[in-house]
Computed example of a mutant assay.
Amino acid sequence: MKHLEVVAGIIEFGGKILCLQKNVGKYDYISYKFEFPGGKVEPGESHCQALMRELNEELAMDIKIREQDFYMTVDHSYPDFEITLHSFLCRVNDCTFTLKEHKSFIWLKKMDLLRVEWAAADLPIVKKLMDDIV
C-alpha cells in the first residue's frame, strides 16, 4: 500500500484555529472533509521546510516553522493509502491568506472543532487540541 509522509499546520489566530474544507477528490471518503493545511514532504525537505512551502503554495502564507513548534504525529491507514502526518502549531499575528486549493474555510475555537466533519487522519489532532484547552 502506498505510504505518504505529510505535514500539517495548526494555524491559530485570536484564539481560533483555521479549518480548511477539501474539494472533491479522487477518494470519496476524504472529499469535502475538513483538514489542517499542509501536504506531502518532498525528498530532501525537512518537515518544517515542507510545511512552510505547502502553506505558501496553498494559502500564500509566509510562516516561519521551527522544530519546537511540533505538536504531534499521527499514523493513519485509509482504504487506499497510509499516511504519517506530522503537525505543527503555527500562531500567527495576521490572519490574511488566499484560498487556492480548498473549497472553503472556517475559524473555530478549540472547543468547537467537532462542529465540522474532519478527515480521519486529522481527528486525533483535533481531539488532542480539545483536550489541551486550559
Rank of each mutant, 00 (worst) to 15 (best):
D75V: 12
D75Y: 12
H76Q: 06
H76S: 00
H76T: 07
S77G: 08
Y78C: 00
P79Y: 06
P79G: 07
F81W: 06
F81M: 03
E82R: 07
I83T: 10
I83G: 02
I83P: 02
I83W: 01
I83K: 08
T84F: 01
T84V: 09
T84H: 08
T84S: 11
T84I: 09
T84Q: 13
T84D: 02
H86K: 09
H86W: 09
S87A: 14
S87R: 02
S87T: 15
S87Q: 03
S87H: 05
F88S: 01
F88D: 03
F88G: 02
F88A: 00
L89W: 11
C90Y: 03
C90D: 06
C90G: 02
R91S: 15
R91C: 13
R91W: 12
R91A: 11
R91K: 14
V92P: 05
V92I: 15
N93M: 10
D94G: 05
C95Q: 12
C95R: 12
F97N: 00
F97E: 04
F97T: 00
T98D: 11
T98L: 15
T98H: 14
L99D: 07
L99N: 08
K100N: 13
E101W: 15
E101H: 12
E101C: 14
E101N: 15
H102A: 07
H102E: 09
K103A: 15
F105W: 13
I106D: 08
I106V: 13
I106K: 12
I106Q: 12
I106P: 13
W107P: 10
W107T: 00
L108E: 00
L108N: 06
K109T: 00
K109V: 01
K110L: 06
K110N: 08
K110A: 14
M111Y: 12
M111V: 12
M111G: 08
D112M: 10
D112F: 04
D112L: 11
D112R: 03
L113I: 02
L113E: 06
L113G: 01
L114T: 11
L114M: 11
L114Q: 12
L114S: 07
R115K: 15
R115E: 15
R115A: 13
V116P: 10
V116C: 10
V116E: 04
V116A: 04
E117W: 11
E117C: 08
E117T: 14
W118K: 03
A119Q: 06
A119E: 11
A119L: 01
A120K: 12
A121L: 03
D122Y: 05
L123Y: 10
L123N: 04
P124I: 04
P124E: 03
I125V: 14
K127D: 11
L129N: 02
M130H: 05
M130T: 10
